[in-house]
Design a protein around this nucleic acid. Structure first.
Lengths: 222, 222
DNA sequence: CCTTGCGTATGACACAGCGTCAGTATAAAC
DNA sequence: GTTTATACTGACGCTGTGTCATACGCAAGG
């Protein structure tokens, strides 16, 4: 996991040749935004301040993004991918669901620790524009769908008790999002280990029953 | 619970006589804000639009509030009280902790349903100003302290398994806050019943163990 | 009935940030 | 080296903020 003080992400538009100037400049702006949002909150982001370190004019920004939320959208696209990937094991995996859960939570905590302030910026930006708010909650809802499906599947297999899956999935996803953002969204970030343990405890207790002693849950999926 | 379409809260400065004009005018502004935020998001709130229905000028606003976040602070003070009261049973109560939990969650869901859009406005406003952000997270942290103390007390009595209480309390509080705001923060609000059930399920499974059949948990506090 | 005084309210101002546009510079194509 | 397309810019008008100096209105005192 990256140390505080340096932004952990860098947009590089195709390492191999033949990239239009436009694409390169867009990446420059995106990286300036990442740099900015790594150290300072979204509310301080203005087009002028964003563009200053690039040496380009304020107006140049509008060549590449219709407005600041379009830039946030681009940032979301990048981070969204990382998060989906991290969540993969429990969502799609086969085998002991508690072990998969463990893996997924660990991955989520790791990504959110590494990207914390950026993710917080996305979440903050979502409250300031109705279109981008849609995009952000669309992202969260995609998780609701996935978790709901996973829970219902495990209910069919008798691994999870019978309850209305969607609102529980909804609540558990909000739990993750807001806990991770609150814990890692600003400097200094909290210690990730207790966060990981708590989230794991809550998910596992809620879905697969409480207090499993060993590493092996005794449950197997599929 | 109040029906959608009408703001559920009204500031009335001392029903009995002898109230300065200043206090009355302040209440007028506060009520205008409540009315506004009941139907429209925080991002649309401007001083001009806020003051228009009061018949007063924009400048008059600054006689009563240094800026818009001071008004939000005043709103927070009102709502914070309601929420603390609702949470009382589990935080301070004596007896079966699962029953108390049930009561507390029901109270929280009820208040947040009734005040949903206003609470969301507070939470949105918190991202746009560093001073008010402090105030809002101070409110949440007060809950962390209370829940941590409650969990540790129940751990001492052997009602809750031994784990690091604070991060779990932290996570469960973020769970409540963000789930309730996401569910009831805009029109149309979600059906409160499934939300209540899910939150209860998660809290109880995590703290007092899973799957208690009857109404009586068999546990007793104190 | 007319002043005086104080609390309340206002129009007008300077400032910050946004998004646009007509026009200029620069790179690419030939 | 000229033409053409692309990238970039300064300057403008607009919306919203927060702060003045000034005006209003109404009670108490002359």
């Amino acid at each position: 996991m990256s140390e505080s003080g340096y932004p952990p992400l860098r947009i590089t538009p195709s390492p191999v040749l033949r990239v239009s100037k436009a694409e390169r400049t867009k990446a420059v702006i995106l990286n300036a935004a990442i740099e900015f949002l790594w150290m300072r909150p979204y509310r301080d982001l203005t087009v002028a301040e964003l563009m200053h370190p690039t040496g380009l004019s304020r107006a140049a920004f509008y060549q590449y993004f219709r407005e600041i939320h379009a830039l946030m959208q681009a940032l979301q696209d990048v981070i969204q991918g990382e998060i989906f990937t991290a969540a993969g094991p429990w969502i799609e995996g086969v085998g002991d669901p508690v072990a998969l859960m463990k893996e997924t939570i660990a991955g989520l905590v790791s990504v959110c620790y590494d990207r914390g302030p950026l993710i917080r910026a996305l979440s903050d930006a979502a409250t300031t524009d109705d279109v981008f708010e849609q995009a952000w909650s669309g992202f969260l809802e995609a998780f609701d769908d996935a978790a709901t499906a996973r829970i219902e599947e495990d209910q069919r297999q008798g691994l999870i008790p019978d309850f209305d899956a969607r609102p529980v999935a909804f609540a558990l996803n909000r739990l993750d999002a807001s806990t991770l953002i609150a814990a890692f969204g600003q400097h200094p970030r909290k210690d990730p280990e207790p966060v990981r343990e708590s989230l794991l405890r809550i998910w596992v207790s809620t879905l697969y029953g409480t207090e499993r002693p060993g590493n092996d849950s005794g449950l197997v999926r599929k």
